[in-house]
């Protein structure tokens, strides 16, 4: 029905928009990274790839190669993100599992409680913790009273009593977990909720204990949901700068996002900033396409069943 061009025409405005403000914008990053800068250290893009100047990209690479600050910040970022994702999995899986399987008549209410944080402004949620963890804040008092502060001090996870907001890697990692875990739990909840109960019943009928039915049926079947959730929260964490800025306010906990932000927005080294953005994008490209591929496959199977 209709000419084959009609629907392409309908899609055209959106396609043009994305081409200009997404694809072309990304080309500008390339042109700036492979460009030059003027005497006021403002970027001078080189639009023609034949004129590209590799100087700034090479300098950025050398910074990594010789173990400069970029390498240090990148390794710290990978460390923070890895720990934060692992903690999210550790906390998030039991919650998603309980909500999907054992919540019973509370399922709706629990789902609502899991959804609401997703829609609360991220910065407001950080503001809440800044209020709590201030030296005279309620959270600091509670952590002190419960002996958690002492435990963290003993373990070396905290430098000084009441110093939660003074450049502590522990606080940054926990803030990342707090900030992004709702985005991990919900897709995982959906994945576990969709597992056909008959698979587990079959395993139990065939003599599997509850424990081995979980480890040999439920867990493998929820693995795609786990991986998708991990990627979904790792991507924004890798580009995060505001969490560390807000709960640490120290360069000691700088992540790669902070480094880019300092070069791009605060400082006047936009060319190096563009080069670093390029490296970050290349590093994350694999994760991005992995996520798109798995979710699309999930979408097509949902349609056919």
């Amino acid at each position: 029905m209709g000419s084959r061009w009609t629907w392409r025409l309908v899609a055209l405005p959106g396609v043009v928009w994305l081409s200009v403000f997404f694809l072309l914008a990304f080309y500008v990053v390339l042109a700036v990274a492979f460009g030059n800068q003027d005497t006021l250290s403002q970027p001078v893009p080189h639009w023609n790839p034949l004129d590209w100047n590799v100087g700034y990209v090479l300098d950025t690479l050398k910074n990594f190669w010789h173990g400069g600050p970029f390498l240090k910040v990148s390794l710290r970022t990978v460390e923070f993100v890895a720990i934060a994702v692992a903690l999210s999995l550790l906390i998030g899986y039991p919650v998603a599992y309980f909500a999907a399987r054992h919540a019973g008549r509370w399922k709706g209410a629990i789902l609502l409680a899991l959804i609401v944080p997703l829609w609360i402004n991220y910065l407001m949620r950080m503001l809440a913790w800044i209020n709590l963890l201030a030296p005279d804040g309620i959270g600091s008092d509670v952590l002190h009273g419960l002996g958690i502060e002492k435990l963290f001090l003993t373990l070396g996870l905290l430098d000084e009593p009441g110093g939660w907001l003074n450049g502590q890697p522990t606080t940054v990692i926990l803030a990342l977990v707090y900030g992004y875990i709702p985005f991990f739990i919900l897709p995982l909840f959906v994945a576990i909720d969709r597992i056909d109960r008959r698979h587990i019943e079959a395993a139990r009928d065939l003599g599997a204990s509850a424990r081995s039915a979980f480890f040999r049926v439920t867990l493998p079947l929820s693995l795609p949901g786990i991986l998708a959730g991990c990627v979904l929260i790792a991507l924004p964490m890798f580009g995060d700068y505001y969490t560390a800025d807000l709960v640490s306010a120290s360069t000691q906990t700088n992540m790669i996002g902070n480094q880019i932000d300092e070069l791009m927005r605060q400082g006047s080294e936009k060319v190096t900033g563009a080069a670093l953005t390029l490296f970050l994008s290349l590093f994350l490209l694999g994760l991005m396409f992995y996520y798109l591929r798995t979710t699309r496959r999930a979408g097509t199977t949902a349609q056919t069943t």
């Binding site: 994305l18 997404f22 970027p43 991507l235 791009m264 953005t277």
Partner: peptide, 24 residues
Amino acid sequence: LMLLPLVTPEIVMGVALLLLFLRL
């Protein structure tokens, strides 16, 4: 192309759009 903005870290889009509006 339509799905990519959903998975691109916001700082990458922020930098790209900033340079787009500054230089082009």
